[in-house]
Design a protein around this nucleic acid. Sequence first.
DNA 1: TTGTACGCGTTATCAC
DNA 2: GTGATAACGCGTACAA
Lengths: 336, 336
Amino acid sequence: MVTIYDIAKRADVSAMTVSRVINNSGRISPKTREKVKRIMEEMNYVPNSTARSLVKQETKMLSLLITDIMNPFFTTLARGAEDAALKLGYKLLFGNSDEKLSKEKEYVDMVLSTRVDGVLFAPASDESADHLAALQRHRIPFVLVDRDVPGIEADIVVGENREGADRLTSHLIRLGHRRIAIVNGLSTVSTARERFAGYVDALNRNGIPFDESLSLECGFNRFDDPEPLDRMLALPDPPTAIFAANNVLAVGVIGYLRDRNIGVPDLMSVACFEDVGLASALDPFLTVAMQPAYEFGYQGVKLLVERIRSKDTAERRIVRLPTDMIVRRSTGRPPV
Amino acid sequence: MVTIYDIAKRADVSAMTVSRVINNSGRISPKTREKVKRIMEEMNYVPNSTARSLVKQETKMLSLLITDIMNPFFTTLARGAEDAALKLGYKLLFGNSDEKLSKEKEYVDMVLSTRVDGVLFAPASDESADHLAALQRHRIPFVLVDRDVPGIEADIVVGENREGADRLTSHLIRLGHRRIAIVNGLSTVSTARERFAGYVDALNRNGIPFDESLSLECGFNRFDDPEPLDRMLALPDPPTAIFAANNVLAVGVIGYLRDRNIGVPDLMSVACFEDVGLASALDPFLTVAMQPAYEFGYQGVKLLVERIRSKDTAERRIVRLPTDMIVRRSTGRPPV
DNA sequence: TTGTACGCGTTATCAC
DNA sequence: GTGATAACGCGTACAA
């Protein structure tokens, strides 16, 4: 591998001079600068950022941890994060926890030893607190995205979960629904709790009592257990609408309904949080509370880099991104 | 930061002994091993992989470059790549070229200076050859995925592009279509060329002459110019079916048709390469030639790591992954 | 079983 | 303007 010394020898200068040319630091005569540059070209020299990281105590690498790489919300977020990172001079190390604490822990260990300069972190659940505490112990700056974690003081980019859920539920109520089910993520995840709260807000405001038997929880990354929904639909007074707490659950629910020949929206209205990527362009079907996923990533990295630069001095910052309700064909009046 | 020396001092041994404990190398008395381990725990020691990389001349990092991070095909591929990398003890550095050579070049430069151990590379086009040559000059092993590049000898994971396109087109012909258009990617991309060849194969075998006026090219990552399609549909003998060379183009085309009230499949059949992610679960609509995207990534990383381990000794390997045609509702008999 | 000396490629510091 | 030297944190080779 060609090193800074190889260049120095050929250019008949010291390694230090070469370093100064590379980094545009210090004063150098135009003549030697040109000469060194030419030789670097000739020898295809590329600085070794590993060595540089070692001495500078910074890697210029950021890490992004998401919980579901198959979910368009998170991939779009990743895209925003990458754009911001590149623009600010960082590389992005990429991780996917699948909502599993064990995978998340492995990833945190890796991140620690890689000495990334910061982490954009979408926690699997409240129990991620241990992992975040580990980052804090090691003074690795991080910013939370999408999900909050009780007990962890950190910069964060979040959506209007409560408001969005409220709006979606209110929309269903306006259409005439009174029996509205919620298919939620696990209550150990902040977004699930907030969306639940918004759902209840809307019910309360409209004088509809919350009915425990219309509430159901499962992992945000897969709708895998149809049995609770079976029970719900077998109720004497079954729901006429379902609020799914994210896109993946909505798609799961609609697949479930299709299998049972329950037409949407004729027999059942469905609304959800987050759009479904390409799908919505194919057939704009789902009524959704859309979040600016790209901005989640972009703003998150921006916050993170500012945090890195300001060290611990700056105070905690919370960026709250708006949610847009988009009404489409999956919601309609209840069957008569 | 706590270093190997801090541990050594506290444990009253040399740094070397600590290193041996960390790496399970050499013989160490159980007593000192335990003692060192305990102290590492106490002090929250995490080895600095930057320093380790510098001396071992390997980073245990792989890099994945894809062309469209919003495309479910590539994100699923990324997921497979990440799983394989983790399993084999590597981290994954993540990059997205947006099909742009300029972004690809920046990314290659970054990869070079980061000294990753290898790159899983989905090239933007044939012109990526320069970038790949740069990797070769610097002896960075790489494996191509999805797309081939003429003139570059490298391990590669590809799909059955020609066969898949042939099958899709044949399916349309069997349904009775004779005027079948192709909305293709740019012919500077190998997959576009191969899918075109498969399309023509099917036409020829069935005695249908290839008609230049039914052929159209645009970037694989966005269907952005409706004008050529306008012209095509204004033809005296317009197409009754469209073969879109990937999922993004298919979605674009269907959106276009919807805007003009051209019903699919009643007035126009549409078939395409690659599935559309969540969308297809929502409403299994598109007839597609589905590729095992996850396997693309998984096998790609596996090949890459084998290549890294065998250095230059092993011969070139080509992994060809099967394509499944899935017939759904977007294709039907031509209008009478 | 454990330790010493050195090198990995770069930059910071200080001297000239 | 430019250079010599030390240091970043760790592993290898060799010695004890």
